[in-house]
Design a protein around this nucleic acid. Structure first.
Lengths: 206, 206
DNA sequence: ACATTCAGCGTACAGGTGTACGCTGTCTTG
DNA sequence: CAAGACAGCGTACACCTGTACGCTGAATGT
């Protein structure tokens, strides 16, 4: 039951996924990428593609899922590292930016399909971003004692800032990326400060 | 010299632009839209397309430019209306959201090409967003007496929030759009409050 | 051992794509 | 009024696309 067969299938499936990612990073959006070319780069016949995915869209959704998943895992690791001291904002954002640098192709897909193509694509992306927001929101409620409402407003704001900043990194070199990272840290601190001020404001006049 | 000829040319040029916008709004990203289909919808032969644009990319860049231009005009009008009283944040954001609702197709193009396709596309979009930020930044310096540095940080943050919020409006009905608008107003106020707090902080320890 | 499953292949087809080339008829200019 | 510019057309071509269909050979289940 080792599945020498299933193992090989999984291998070519990964080859397809990698091929798609490569062709994405080269240039061009996901929609302008062809089944045939992806199959060619993966080293299989065009018609064999269908043994793995119903169509290109299904492959695309897989990419989105994988991207979101590994981002979340990375951030969770980062948060654990923080429990032994360190600025949560700095570490989280540095981790995020490193992720974007290492996964430019898929992250670009994420942002691009967020406002494009089919509805199912958009929903998939929204789902990933919602995961991100939810974890941040919980942190703000549990560790920083914000009200649900204010935590929700804050986490949504931060998500918008951070994902936009990720997009700003696409065309730039490492040096510029560090500048953007520092700027983003400042921006998130701006929001945190604003939320803190709002909390105090609400305490005085509830 | 009225140019009955030039007039006709401009007319079909607009027809091409409109056709492209229509096909954009239907679904699908810009890159998956074909010269032939655009020409067909505009009512001209495919080969006549070249009398107006070198290729589809040139048409796309034109769309981006027009979108940014009319957004800026609208916001400038809104700011004039404010001089006779009213919350600048509320009016600006409501105007912005109305613009997105009225120009979903091109605004989607803007956001999509921001993180996609060719470098020249991305730069064009960045340019439009920079215009937006610059006008906001000037306002913050001149009318609210912020330092350049803090105004820059603030305007960049707000631009990120507002453009992201615009993207959130794509799939939703009018009711949900109003909710998003209100949320965005709160978020921008959060940032403004954070910037205010930062300013005070810096005054105490410069 | 044999029968079944199934990943991958090759062929084939209908349809779409961008664009080169040369023509037409009308507006514009001299 | 003649000469030229030029928007738009039709034809033609080479190329790429998705996918239907049936086959093969090896891994698997009995």
């Amino acid at each position: 039951m080792a599945g020498i067969r299933a193992k090989q299938k999984e291998k070519t499936r990964q080859a397809l996924i990698n091929a798609a990612m490569n062709q994405l990073s080269a240039e061009n959006g996901f929609s302008s990428l062809s089944l045939r070319e992806v199959a060619r780069e993966a080293g299989i016949a065009p018609t064999s593609f269908y043994r793995h995915f119903r169509d290109m869209d299904e492959l695309g959704l897989t990419l989105v899922d994988e991207c979101g998943l590994s981002l979340r895992q990375l951030l969770r690791q980062a948060r654990q590292r923080i429990e032994s001291g360190g600025s949560i904002i700095r570490v989280s954002i540095e981790t995020f930016m490193q992720f974007v640098a290492d996964n430019t192709a898929t992250f670009r897909l994420l942002l691009q399909e967020r406002s494009g193509r089919s509805r199912s694509f958009r929903l998939a992306v929204v789902r990933e971003i919602d995961h991100f927001k939810a974890e941040l929101e919980d942190y703000l409620v549990n560790e920083q004692s914000f009200t649900r409402e204010l935590a929700e407003l804050q986490s949504d704001t931060i998500a918008k800032i951070v994902f936009s900043a990720g997009a700003d990194c696409f065309d730039v070199d490492e040096e510029a990326r560090e500048i953007i990272t520092e700027k983003t840290i400042q921006q998130v601190r701006l929001v945190a400060r604003g939320a803190e001020a709002t909390r105090r404001l609400l305490k005085r006049q509830p």
